[in-house]
Design a protein around this nucleic acid. Structure first.
Lengths: 359, 359
DNA sequence: GGCGTGGCAGCAAACGTTTTCTACAACCGC
DNA sequence: GCGGTTGTAGAAAACGTTTGCTGCCACGCC
């Protein structure tokens, strides 16, 4: 069913149908009404790919994220989608899952579908891939980083602010041995957070020496805690590069009967929704996913719909700030007990194999 | 840059370019090589919307989920995307966020973009909306429910199996007052789980009377626990309609110093990834998101790429089964203490307002 | 009353592909 | 050597829209 079918039934030309559908004001109200009636009766929906072809605009925005399974991102995707719906855009979401092949395929798919703009909310995208998009003059939005030219918006994130608050908060609780569990260091965002930690520690006269590397996932938090606990100058507080890491830390601490926050204070980063529901609720640095998505979308829309002549090179900045919950407390008097790693609880999960007779 | 540009530079017709690009074997290898060279040099990518227009197939699958922010779904989306990439499809994901308006917009967007099939992994989609898709002969895949006609695949989920295991597991731990926190009862899936609970309880001679209603979110779990704790015949175990509810329950229990599993056993449903990382790790009924996505994708692909004549009305079924972790234990001797609701910890979260001077 | 003008509908081209059909060349067999 | 057959490239139509341009009609003005 196409526009011609409508035209036939409404006894007008396809041009008139098109104009009626698109609410072009020069069309006679009576004709328009006739068209709408037929459109409605037949349940006609315009074919957006035909429209995109002639218009040269697809009304699709690409959204490239690291992994949609990381709870940080779904919130962004949701907000982004809400805004897209409001503005009559579609979104094409792809995960890079830290795989160069997938990054490449992400970019290729965006280009093939002729998206009108791409928000790159993943880190560690290769320069040459980005060049592919830039070459085609696809408007881009980056987090943190990206070339400093018109048509490309950068969202700067003020990591320092929130991390300084976190460090000062811990220091105020008399912690001196504060560890940092970094993210994968090939990611600029992870690097930036670690640097912010170093700066903040130095500012208050502590040496930022307890730094181990995680993977921004729960597993990395778990092994990082084991690593930290095996040290002779074990920390009394640990600041994590993201919330997932912090959740892993708390989970591992649970296995070793390390009490949070009594024995060990934990601070996360991101303030994902789950942070409010961990046990104990996680003190963390908020980096509003909602705001981030809003900024990214606005930036993209601005690039696409405004005159490129206006060359307005907006500076977008997202601030971060500490949210206090209950995973931090006064430093224990003499550091926490030394037997943690021995008090292992049973771990692992078993699965019931069959349908189960009554037991 | 289009196929004609390539044709001009390779000194062949557009037909040959098209054939070369699509690896049609009848094209002269030498010509093909010439075309590929130009394609490569110019960084040409075919315009999929033009292709879709003439082919009548968009190579886009729609994926309608309830809320992408519910951790159950991102796993599905990821697996679905992986399969899509492998098979050269794109996915168009929309969240209904339990909003009729958004469901409508979801369906409209799917139709406008001319998707080749839709997996409806949300519950409570209105019949008339589905009719819109069926009317256009869009292949559909449903969870649980859906019209029983060719071109529409239903993934039946065996809730009973897993829930029976859960109930029997709790009974084996000498629990007799087992509560159930249901999901929103206008959802068929929530209803089915509750029914499975009732059946399972009855099977072992317990009466399924302790049933309260949640919302499949953490907040609902929290208030449901409060409700249950205010009862005179307070439960010693609670089975939740999904894991988010269970997380809410454990979080609320924490606030009231109800120990899990010592005072209260908790069982979830879904086995989201986070279930392994809660404190304590959550015993739950697994409903593999990975499998679910695989089945949905396969069903869709089957509907789209196979002869409609084959009429193979595959039955897809997903079984569920209990995963034991550490949120369940022997029932406390005389029920747990009665003072829970009074031993309230401080709650809520505060936010540090400004950049923070040293404290 | 004639001409000019404004308003509005329709024709047709264009968007970038795929594919059918035609055409041409080369080769083979008789 | 010629007709037939096979193999391969190109011309052109088609997919479903939008929109510039043309042209018609009616109205108003002189």
């Amino acid at each position: 069913m196409d526009i011609r079918e409508i035209a036939r039934r409404a006894k007008v030309s396809t041009a008139t149908v098109s104009r009626a559908i698109n609410r072009v004001p020069t069309v006679d109200p009576q004709l328009a009404k006739r068209v709408w009636k037929v459109v409605d009766e037949l349940g006609y929906y315009p074919n957006t790919q035909a429209r995109a072809l002639v218009l040269g605009r697809s009304r699709i925005f690409g959204l490239i994220v690291s992994e949609i399974t990381n709870p940080f991102f779904p919130e962004i995707v949701q907000t982004f989608e809400n805004l897209a719906v409001e503005n009559n855009y579609e979104i094409l979401v792809t995960s890079t899952v830290h795989d160069p092949k997938r990054m490449e395929s992400s970019v290729r798919r965006m280009i093939e579908r002729r998206v009108d703009g791409v928000a790159i909310l993943t880190f560690g995208m290769e320069e040459t891939l980005i060049e592919h998009l830039r070459f085609r003059k696809v408007p881009l939005v980056f987090i943190d980083v990206g070339p400093d030219v018109p048509g490309i918006a950068n969202i700067r994130i003020n990591y320092q602010n929130g991390i300084r608050q976190a460090v000062q908060h811990l220091a105020a609780l008399r912690h001196t041995r504060i560890a940092f569990i970094a993210g994968p260091l090939h990611l600029k965002s992870a690097l930036a957070r670690r640097e912010a930690f170093k700066v903040s520690m130095t500012e208050i006269g502590l040496s930022p020496e307890l730094i181990v590397v995680g993977d921004h996932r729960m597993e990395g938090g778990m092994s990082a805690l084991i690593e930290l606990e095996s040290l002779s100058n074990r920390p009394t507080a640990v600041l994590c590069s993201n919330d997932m890491t912090a959740i892993g830390v708390m989970r591992e601490a649970y296995d070793h009967n390390i009490r949070i926050p009594d024995d060990l204070s934990v601070v996360g980063f991101d303030d994902i929704r789950m942070a409010e529901f961990t046990i104990p609720p996680l003190t963390t640095v908020q980096m509003s996913q909602h705001e981030l998505a809003k900024i990214a979308f606005r930036a993209l829309l601005n690039e696409v719909e405004c005159e490129p002549s206006s060359q307005q090179h907006h500076k977008y900045e997202l601030i971060t700030s500490l949210v206090l919950r209950r995973s931090t407390a006064l430093a224990p008097a003499g550091g926490h007990a030394t037997t943690h790693l021995k008090a292992n609880r049973a771990t692992g999960s078993r699965k019931i194999p069959a349908a189960g007779s009554r037991s």
